[in-house]
Design a protein around this nucleic acid. Sequence first.
DNA 1: GAGTGGTCTAGACCACCAC
DNA 2: TGGTGGTCTAGACCACTCT
Lengths: 263, 263
Amino acid sequence: MAGHQILVRQVDPTSDRAVFRQIADHLREAIQDGRLRTGEKLPSEAQLMEHYNVARMTVRQAIQELKAEGLAVSEHGRGVFVRARPPVKRLAFDRFARRHRKEGKAAFLAESESVGAKADVDMIKVREAPAPGDIAERLRVSPDETVVVRSRRYSLDGTPVELATSYIPVDLARGTRIMDDNPGPGGIYARIEEQGRQLERFIEDVSTRMPTHEEARLLLLGPGVPVFRLIRTAYDVEGRPVEVCDTIMPGDAYLLSYELPAH
Amino acid sequence: MAGHQILVRQVDPTSDRAVFRQIADHLREAIQDGRLRTGEKLPSEAQLMEHYNVARMTVRQAIQELKAEGLAVSEHGRGVFVRARPPVKRLAFDRFARRHRKEGKAAFLAESESVGAKADVDMIKVREAPAPGDIAERLRVSPDETVVVRSRRYSLDGTPVELATSYIPVDLARGTRIMDDNPGPGGIYARIEEQGRQLERFIEDVSTRMPTHEEARLLLLGPGVPVFRLIRTAYDVEGRPVEVCDTIMPGDAYLLSYELPAH
DNA sequence: GAGTGGTCTAGACCACCAC
DNA sequence: TGGTGGTCTAGACCACTCT
């Protein structure tokens, strides 16, 4: 093993800064200036204890800090590693252009094909249920009015990338393939347009927060990775909201791109 | 004190789930179903130790988990409290409409006035420096080509809400008030349009991550709060990028709203 | 079996806050 | 001054991974 070259400095016990934070600082710098590269193993807890001459809880607190920042992940029995950043997927502002629906693809499939990835949808559940408050407001239905709720999980090459729940007024969904697990070519939006309700625009409301435990489990998120919450409302040409889609996406895997007018 | 009503359950020592996680689960449920309200104090570490009959490090791990999720904040010498969510500010998709500039207001001031808050800008620094790689690409200049860099911090009613850094090609900035700390009425965009370069559109690239330590300090962020990173590129009517603005915003204080075309 | 991280105990001293 | 959280020590036993 010959000792870790990255361990050169010692902590300053007279400093105001807590010892565990100083250790975290050393490791953070090593990661950020490339002395520790993506996927590489950090010194073990035992090595850090010996080098800095501190108790185990102290080095664990330092490592905990790096994990919370999303810089490191631990693997039981193997070690602590510099987190590998997933390739970032850019969601373009024209991703709901009608030409995609015309080609018989739902938005997600159209997007993923363009990057040569294999898309999957699982955990599909369709039911009728009351609309939650913020959704009802966007859909312009009474709070707790029954709507059709479609939830599902999207994966790309086997990695879960999105949890989505759509809310559709019952009069637009009942008796259509929107009630089926597979809504057919072009997805929900194509089924809505078939009813003569041409879509005109979408409003997306983007927020971010730390995931709940359930979300972290379903999206295989490590600690220190926030999620995007994206609430999209689809409007038809008459200005009526015809669908609200509430999606949760890993924050480290997406870049959302939008166009704004200057006039 | 009469004991905490929220402490009713005990942990199951035979469960696979770690004791500290079970304690965190109890507290999380109490917060989420309203038994512990915003701003309210959690039971102290000593109380939790006694109730669950565990060591101090165990209850501290439970509390640590809640803090990482952004559900609680600790105050030295006072206690641990249910995190107060700041009022969420909605950024509308028409916020760069020219009418705001015509009224002599920069975008930030126009926005904040509409909600009746007092806006401040501090930590203003203007300098010439090489453009970072991702910025240079958006600005279509060579990597490390010198550009004008304007950084500043925005506050609302005394609370810091945004760290922003603008990059402007030197030929558009030198000799104008863009080089001044105060760029004048209507902000940078107004100064650019005065040079006959009418703005046509903006592209905003939105990402999210945990803040660096420096960002958490400048934005007064607690643990467990992610940030938005928003990179906005401004284009003139000829399609030339005339400014790139890189901003960091507390993720719990903003909701970004965008409009997407369906055609 | 040796090495790793995960969990937990039972203390200690300190800094900060409210009374 | 007593209660609070912040930091740190020095152990223990366990589960997991690799060889």
